[in-house]
Nucleic acid binder design. Structure first.
Length: 302
DNA sequence: AAGCGAACCTGGCTGC
DNA sequence: TGCAGCCAGGTTCGCT
């Protein structure tokens, strides 16, 4: 499911149910997700109040009154089900239809007042951890996380600096969470398409003479922001008219321009090419070969 | 050291 | 209908 916009959508869905409320009980249906849950996981959470529910990159961060932070990562298939005190969903709230997926309900938080929040994750690539608030930024999960792409620091200049000297293709560099944190396969494809940049261009080509950003670097920084901001907005929309959602909440319905459109016509006005798929680092890359032509390397530059 | 492929685990879809 | 094969939004590990 989750790249940054989906995680932010989930955060907004959970916030009204969790933030400011006490967690009365925690039920674990198995001892591990991707990793073993930390020692005494349920006991350390039960009875604590959620002071705030935040997000960093693709991580959800619940600040607990105990002084610990509950770190949650959704992996590929993690999702949450919210039930009100009567056991049914509250109107407009975040849920999926309970049913055959229930065997993957791994963690249940029973909230003050009787509502519950269930973490379901079929592939179990997600995980949860508890760390003291003061140690969060130095924790193994947060330590190497790169810049927040919706924050103020993302710019062409910063991208050029982060990517300078890198031979890895733009696609791989943008997926590297240590550089820019929060992009995944979908939004990297979308941002590169909107920028007109080939996913195969060496990342280092965003840096011009003296390491200054090329125009392409500025364009890419801007499109990353645009793509993510639009997706967050679309997720929010889906959340608001949730009555029609089909259970894949967090997978907001979204029209991608290239992602998963192999063989379909390029959406660029006047372009007669079709979307192509290639594999980079074992992942599918969707792009328009005409609109995203590889750029020539600067001969002898630097 | 950087960069790439495989691995982790399960389900859904396609094609024979 | 069954089954094999391939694919999936993420991260981490190990080999070159």
């Amino acid at each position: 499911m989750p790249e940054l916009p989906e995680v932010e959508t989930v955060r907004r869905g959970l916030e009204p149910v969790m933030a400011g409320r006490f967690i009365e009980a925690v039920t674990l249906n198995r001892p591990d997700l991707r990793f073993p849950l930390p020692a005494r996981f349920a006991e350390r959470i039960a009875g604590q109040r959620v002071e705030a529910l935040g997000r960093r990159a693709k991580y959800l961060l619940a600040d607990l009154s105990s002084g610990e932070v509950l770190i949650m990562h959704l992996g590929m298939s993690g999702r949450f089900l919210i039930r009100d005190a009567a056991g049914t969903r509250a109107p407009g709230e975040f849920h999926y239809e309970a049913g055959d997926g229930a065997k993957h309900d791994h963690v249940v938080f029973r909230m003050e007042g009787g509502a519950s929040v269930t973490y379901n994750d079929a592939r179990r690539f997600g995980f949860m951890d508890l760390v003291p608030r003061a140690e969060l930024t130095a924790s193994r999960h947060m330590r190497d996380v790169g810049i927040e792409p919706l924050g103020n620091e993302l710019s062409g200049a910063l991208l050029a600096r982060l990517f300078e000297g890198k031979a890895a293709p733009l696609k791989a560099a943008l997926l590297d969470q240590k550089l820019v944190a929060g992009l995944g396969n979908i939004y990297v494809c979308e941002a590169l398409f909107r920028s007109g940049l080939s996913p195969m261009d060496p990342a280092g080509t965003l840096a011009g003479p003296g390491g200054r950003p090329t125009p392409a670097a500025d364009t890419l920084a801007a499109t990353i922001r645009d793509v993510l901001a639009e997706a967050v907005e679309a997720g929010g929309s889906t959340l608001r008219d949730f009555a029609h959602a089909d259970g894949s909440l967090g997978y907001f319905q979204h029209r991608f321009r290239v992602y998963d459109r192999e063989g379909e016509p390029c959406v660029t006005p006047g372009c007669t090419d079709r979307v192509a798929r290639l594999v980079q680092s074992g992942r599918s890359t969707f792009h328009c070969p005409s609109c995203q032509k590889p750029r020539r390397r600067r001969r002898g530059a630097r």
